[in-house]
Design a protein around this nucleic acid. Structure first.
Lengths: 202, 202
DNA sequence: CGCGAAACTGGAACGTGTTCCTATTATGGA
DNA sequence: TCCATAATAGGAACACGTTCCAGTTTCGCG
């Protein structure tokens, strides 16, 4: 059980290894924040993380795995932050839009980082499936929670999940458009909100 | 008026140049059909098109421009094919799904080609804006036409356009999922149809 | 503690996108 | 027809992701 996957935290025995992994992801985020996708160069990551290039590749088998893993960690952080606070808004769409705005604004505050992570996500192939699945689940959970603020797991219908997925798709497309400079932040936000209203209509 | 953009057909004076451009795009499609994104190697394209590498770069400033331009040409072909025939289906969603199915099936018949073109589309940045805009317009037009079969330009409301864009987003995400091996063709189709029903609800 | 295995280092090497340069060829106007 | 200019050919060179290898260090187990 190894080969093409990134080493997860769990399967890293020693504290030194967990620390290496953390240093690598920190370096990735730092470089991505500075200069985006292109600035995340494997040699640079290795150097900044104080790790040999070969070791970097032992932990993350490709630049894409590396970036998607970093994205996952950032997402978890965001979801944790959001988890406890109640979500304001009287209607489902208000709450969903609140979550989207908040998340999007967070991302747009770090344009380079967002560009790097979005690019990686879009370029990932099947070998990054598990990392991507993690991100997808987090997003879906965030959105369905916004639709049904009180009851955690009850009341979430198949339609709700489908709607969350569609919103996730739109969000991704909008993000890609924004990241690649095809749409402005304002347009991005407007388009997303329009989509939410079309889907939840209230 | 030149620099970072691909040379379009219009701004190519001589027939020899138009022919070169065509040979290049043909070679691109051929290689992409065979082996996907990775098989579209600039040296290989140049050789197969019987053109020097420098010339290839004069016509298309990057691999991404090249592939997105090829995508545009294929899309135009598809849209032309669809334009004349009436779209079957009693409801808007039936017709939209028909169009999506038809287009998607066409793409899935050429997995490698689709992979190459989708990857390029996702990776494109602002410098490919015009090429991408072309594709977006074609898709939106195809979808709004499916929603309103008779009247061409009348009756298309802002909501219709917004819905078409959302469907386009979902379509793109689904395509990316399929192309990258994250979802099967069946799942892809099911998800798209679910989205259409959620949006058009009939 | 001592040993074998696994992990890590440092760096060379390869493939492919991209750039650049020089020599040659096509083009269009006087 | 002839010339200036642009376009093309051919290929070297560079950058960065990725692979690979030889030597060294760390780790876990008896």
């Amino acid at each position: 059980m190894s080969t093409t996957n990134s080493l997860t935290v769990e399967e890293l025995g020693s504290a030194a290894q967990r620390d290496r992994r953390k240093r690598i992801l920190d370096a990735t985020i730092a470089l991505a924040t500075q200069g985006g996708f292109d600035a995340v160069q494997m040699r640079a990551v290795a150097e900044q993380a104080d790790v040999a290039l070969g070791t970097l590749y032992r932990y993350f088998p490709s630049k894409i795995h590396l970036l998607v893993s970093a994205l996952g960690r950032e997402f978890e952080r965001a979801e944790t932050t959001l988890r406890d606070k109640p979500i304001p808004g009287d209607t489902a769409s208000d709450r969903v839009i609140y979550v989207l705005r908040k998340t999007t604004r967070g991302l747009q505050g770090d344009p380079h980082l967002t560009e790097a992570l979005t690019r990686a996500f879009m370029f990932a192939d099947a070998s990054v499936q598990s990392e991507i699945h993690t991100v997808g689940m987090l997003l879906t959970r965030m959105l369905t929670r916004a639709m049904h603020p009180e009851q955690e797991h009850t009341e979430v219908t198949e339609d709700d999940v489908a709607i969350a997925r569609v919103i996730g798709d739109v969000w991704l497309s909008a993000l890609v458009g924004w990241v690649t400079g095809r749409t402005s932040a304002t347009e991005t936000a407007a388009h997303m909100e329009k989509a939410v209203h079309l889907l939840l209509r209230d």
